[in-house]
C-alpha cells in the first residue's frame, strides 16, 4: 500500500531519557534568511515611521528651514518600503529557484485534505488539546497559513503604499502610472486608501506579535529549533 503523504511527522511522546538524539536539516537557504531579517527591519521601520506619518510627533518651534523631521520620517518610510518591495519580489523569485521549503509561503496546499487534518491537529495543539505537536522541517500548517496571510498583507501594503507614494511624486510619475489604479479601486478618494493602509499596519503588528510569540514558544515546547534556524538555516530536531 502506498504510504499516506504527510507534511509533519513524529507526534509521539519523546524517546526515553537516555537515548536523546539531535538531527539537523538544512531548511532556510542563505537568501531566505537574509530576506527574512531585511524584511523584519524594514517592517519595523515602516510601522514606526508610518504611525508618525498619520499622527505626527509634537510640533517643533523655530524656523522651518532649521528642521526636516517629517521629511526624514517620510524618507525613512519610503526607503524601507523600497527594501520591503524589492525584497518581496526577490523572495518570489527565490521561491522559484530555491529549495522546496522556500515555496511554502506562497503555495498553501488547501486542496489537500491531509493538510487540513494537520492544520486542525496543529490548532488543537495550540489549544492544549493534544499532548505533542507534530514536527515539521518547514512550516507547520497553521504557521504556513499565517505566513501566507502576511504575504497577502505585504502585497496589499505595497500596492496601496506605492499608490499613495505616487500621489506625492505626481501624476506623471512611474508610481502613479503603475499603482494609481488602486486609488480608483477604493472609490477615488485616497483618504479611504490611507485608512486601509493604516489598518494594514495594525494587521502587520498583530502578525509580528503572534509570529514572534509562536516562534519562541515552539522553540521551547515543540522539540524543534525555530529562532536559531532563521540564523543558521538548520532545523534541529530533538527527540
Amino acid at each position: 500500500m502506498k504510504p499516506l503523504k504527510t507534511y509533519g511527522f513524529d507526534n509521539d511522546i519523546p524517546a526515553e531519557l537516555g537515548g536523546r538524539r539531535t538531527t539537523a536539516v538544512y531548511v532556510y537557504q542563505a537568501p531566505v534568511r537574509i530576506w527574512h531579517w531585511l524584511t523584519a527591519i524594514s517592517v519595523m521601520v515602516l510601522a514606526i515611521t508610518g504611525f508618525f506619518i498619520g499622527k505626527p510627533l509634537p510640533t517643533l518651534s523655530g524656523e522651518a528651514s532649521a528642521h526636516f523631521l517629517m521629511g526624514y520620517i517620510r524618507f525613512a518610510h519610503f526607503a524601507a518600503a523600497y527594501v520591503l518591495a524589492v525584497g518581496l519580489i526577490f523572495r518570489i523569485y527565490w521561491a522559484i529557484v530555491g529549495n522546496a521549503y522556500s515555496r511554502e509561503l506562497f503555495i498553501v496546499p488547501v486542496w489537500d485534505p491531509q493538510w487540513w487534518r494537520e492544520f486542525f491537529y496543529e490548532v488543537r495543539w495550540y489549544m492544549f488539546m493534544v499532548r505533542y505537536p507534530k514536527k515539521y522541517v518547514g512550516h507547520n500548517p497553521v504557521g504556513q497559513f499565517a505566513m501566507f496571510c502576511f504575504f497577502l498583507c505585504a502585497v496589499g501594503m505595497i500596492l496601496s503604499g506605492f499608490a499613495l507614494y505616487g500621489e506625492g511624486l505626481g501624476e506623471q510619475s512611474w508610481a502613479y502610472r503603475m499603482f494609481g489604479w488602486v486609488i480608483s479601486l477604493v472609490g477615488g478618494n485616497s483618504m479611504t486608501l490611507h485608512g486601509l493602509h493604516r489598518l494594514g499596519m495594525w494587521f502587520t503588528i498583530l502578525f509580528v506579535m503572534l509570529h514572534i510569540y509562536a516562534a519562541i514558544r515552539e522553540d521551547i515546547m515543540s522539540k524543534q529549533s525555530m529562532i536559531s534556524t532563521m540564523v543558521s538555516g538548520f532545523r534541529m530536531f530533538k527527540s
Binding site: F128, M201, W202, M209, R217
Partner: peptide
Amino acid sequence: SNADKIGLTVAGAAGAAIVAHAAVS
C-alpha cells in the same frame, strides 16, 4: 472607530491572549 482604535484594541487583545497562552503553556 478608526484604524488606530481598531488596531490598538486588536493588538491589546492579542497581547493579553499571548500572555495568557504563554502562562497556560
